[in-house]
Simulated scan of single mutants.
Amino acid sequence: MEDISNTHIVKRWWRFRTQSSLWANFLQNKYCKRAHCVTKVAISSDSHTWKSLVKIRAKIEPHIVWKIRSGNSSFWWDNWTGKGALAKIFPGIGRSAKLPVNFFFDNNSWNFAKLLNFLPMQAAQSIAQITIDEQNGTDFPIWQLSDDGCYTNKSAWHSIRASAPSSPFLNSLWHKRIPFKISFLNWRIFKRKVPFDDIIGKFGTDRRSMCVCCRVPTYETIQHFFVESEIAHQTWSFFGNPLGIRHTDQPIPAIFKKWMDCKYTNNVQKLILQVTPLIICWELWKQRCSCKYGNQRKINIGKILYHGIWTIKSAASKLFPPIRDMARWTEICYTIEKLRPITKWWQVLWEMPPFGTMKMNTDGSYITEKGTAGIGGILRDCRGDLIMAFSITVQRQ
């Protein structure tokens, strides 16, 4: 939520910097009448809106680049070179906020002598190479984080969010063949975000509930319910034994890893090895909730197995439709293990044109981001000998 809120603050800063509006003019006259908005420091008496803009400013300002036209941008504080504000690159030099870029113009070129009065030789030479566009319009901003230079909330959100390192193992929990609610539950299990006593106990509550998954109830923990209980052993063994996976009392991540690291002979078997552990935990969780919060007195192992097979068949039916007609789990495992993909291929040949004629083959491609296209062709005679070839770059109108 904080990242989403900061994204909207970024959007407000972009509009404040780039658009002329009543709101932007009000803030400019109230807080930045004597100083550039990039240099202004927030104080306690400032409004909450302005303080939030100043707080996010340092992260966003480097991504706003000003394209020079009339040169009305600030020479020292606006990022018009693409390398950042010159005042921060050369901190020991005078940094007046009122000095515009066009002070260094000489018609449609740079006044190199003036640049040398303010900047070192290397910096002045670098600036002198910047092209000055037509001076009949004001400088306009470019949002560097998008391909077309226009601001988007998506690009802003990605620039400020603190994303954790990607985990291939956690990514495997989010499978497109199963409902989102199943993946979300398993993510909660791995993050220990499910209401078991050993997890709730870290908040200072001393609860010792008894499990509903064993003939002799014992203290219920997340590890006991999903791995070590009698119902868990029966469920994992039922689904795992026909696939050659023996259930042992290991941590939940280790059990999932054992399933997902199993060798497979085809894509259907790979899918089943990936989704079956997720579905087992889902069915166990449903039965626990029915006993804890519903009218069910004990866990029904038959429902777990039946609904588990049905969900697995639904997930695999698009890849292998005949699985819908298989009722027994052992039959499903045996069939998919023997399943082999059928390889289809066909030969593509260039055919010569009839005697006394010629053939031209053409092709083309289009790059959406740049708006450019290319076309080309080759002309051959009836013997296949090259007569001529061409290629043309086409620009979007």
Rank of each mutant, 00 (worst) to 15 (best):
T343F: 10
N111M: 01
G204W: 10
S290M: 12
I56F: 04
R208Q: 14
L339F: 14
N136M: 01
F203K: 08
C214N: 07
G149D: 06
W50V: 09
L271Q: 05
F90N: 04
I89H: 07
P322D: 07
W282C: 05
A87K: 02
A389D: 11
V216R: 09
V394S: 05
W350L: 12
S73D: 03
C281K: 00
I252Q: 02
F140S: 15
W346K: 12
K338W: 01
W23D: 05
E2W: 09
A389T: 13
D148N: 15
I245L: 12
R207H: 10
V41F: 02
A373C: 14
H8Q: 11
E134C: 07
F226M: 04
R340W: 02
M352Q: 08
S229I: 04
P195I: 08
C289M: 12
K318M: 07
A373I: 08
F238V: 07
N171Y: 00
A124S: 15
G384K: 05
S229G: 04
T248N: 13
F190W: 06
I60R: 01
Q296Y: 00
G84C: 12
Y293A: 06
T131N: 11
K303W: 05
R324W: 11
T265R: 12
G356E: 08
T248K: 09
N108H: 13
I64S: 03
F140M: 08
G376D: 07
P353Q: 06
A85G: 04
T7E: 03
D46F: 13
P168S: 08
W259S: 00
K258M: 13
W329M: 09
E134W: 03
R12F: 12
S290V: 02
I336C: 04
N108G: 04
N267Q: 13
P168T: 05
W236A: 00
F169W: 07
I252R: 02
K51L: 12
I130N: 05
C291I: 06
I64V: 15
P168N: 10
D363Y: 12
S47C: 10
N136F: 04
K30P: 00
G244W: 08
P253W: 04
I68H: 02
I9M: 06
S96G: 13
K67I: 09
H36L: 09
S290T: 04
S172Q: 14
G137A: 11
C333A: 15
K30Q: 14
M388N: 13
